[in-house]
């Protein structure tokens, strides 16, 4: 039955070559922890991706309750945390995931760095990777404000004051992020929300696609 459905679809849109392109690639012996235990260092990239998926899914569920305005943001998070069934777990996954992803990212970067895996021909993928790191830090910075509690508010205020001290464009930069040259308030929260759930994830998906396509094109670096 499933085979029939597959054949019916394949007949019309020829999915087999696409699927084989995705599924067929080799896992060389030196990156396979089943053969060499020390190859677990090659898992950090995959684990980063795994946590990114957790972040996306838990974040999607969070937006079902979260309200991005200064009157209700904190209340909606408090409600989610105390009243909603499993709300605490979903928020917990997103909260701890944000830290775990930074740790995994760091381990992955160090693996690539100390193995010299960024050398020719993988320079571009390394730069894509560093940009991914910046995007993840940006997600952390903007997400920190969203619960609108004291630690969120005052940390963001400090962050924006630092941005303001950048020469020449400081004030414009702060206004761009905060929505106002001096107030950290309603505008700031909606801007950070938009950046956190639309702008940065869009950048993240684009960079991830580039990262993975490049890995597939070049193959994983050989043994040292």
């Amino acid at each position: 039955m499933l085979q029939k459905i597959y054949d019916w679809i394949d007949d019309r849109i020829d999915v087999t070559p696409i699927w084989r392109d995705i599924a067929d690639h080799e896992v060389p012996e030196h990156v396979n922890p089943a053969h060499h235990f020390s190859a677990f260092v090659y898992c950090f990239g995959g684990l980063t991706f795994f946590v990114v998926v957790i972040q996306i899914l838990s974040g999607m569920f969070l937006t079902m309750y979260y309200v991005p305005d200064i009157e209700n943001a904190w209340k909606s998070v408090y409600y989610l945390q105390t009243e909603v069934a499993h709300g605490q777990i979903v928020r917990g996954m997103h909260h701890w995931g944000a830290s775990v992803v930074i740790v995994m990212l760091l381990l992955h970067t160090l693996r690539v760095f100390f193995q010299g895996a960024y050398k020719k021909p993988r320079e571009l993928n390394w730069m894509v990777g560093v940009l991914l790191f910046f995007v993840m830090l940006g997600l952390g910075f903007t997400g920190y404000l969203l619960p609108w509690d004291n630690k969120a508010y005052f940390a963001t205020q400090v962050g924006l004051e630092i941005a303001e001290q950048v020469p020449f464009i400081g004030t414009q930069l702060k206004t761009l992020l905060a929505g106002d040259p001096s107030i950290v308030g309603a505008q700031t929260l909606t801007r950070f929300f938009a950046i956190h759930v639309f702008f940065l994830p869009a950048a993240l998906f684009g960079l991830l696609a580039a990262h993975f396509i490049l890995i597939r094109r070049q193959g994983i670096s050989g043994p040292l």
Binding site: I70, W74, K75, V77, Y78, Q81, Q88, R91, G92, H94, H95, W96, A98, S99, I102, L137, G140, F141, Y144, P147, W148, D149, N150, K151, A152, Y153, F154, A155, Q157, V158, G159, V184, G185
Partner: peptide, 23 residues
């Protein structure tokens, strides 16, 4: 459980700000 503090109070001058650990 993930932490949540009091609702933001911009007039709370005594609060000592602190970013997330990786900053």
């Amino acid at each position: 459980p993930s932490p949540l503090e009091k609702m933001a109070d911009p007039t709370d001058a005594a609060y000592i700000p602190l970013p997330d650990w990786y900053f």
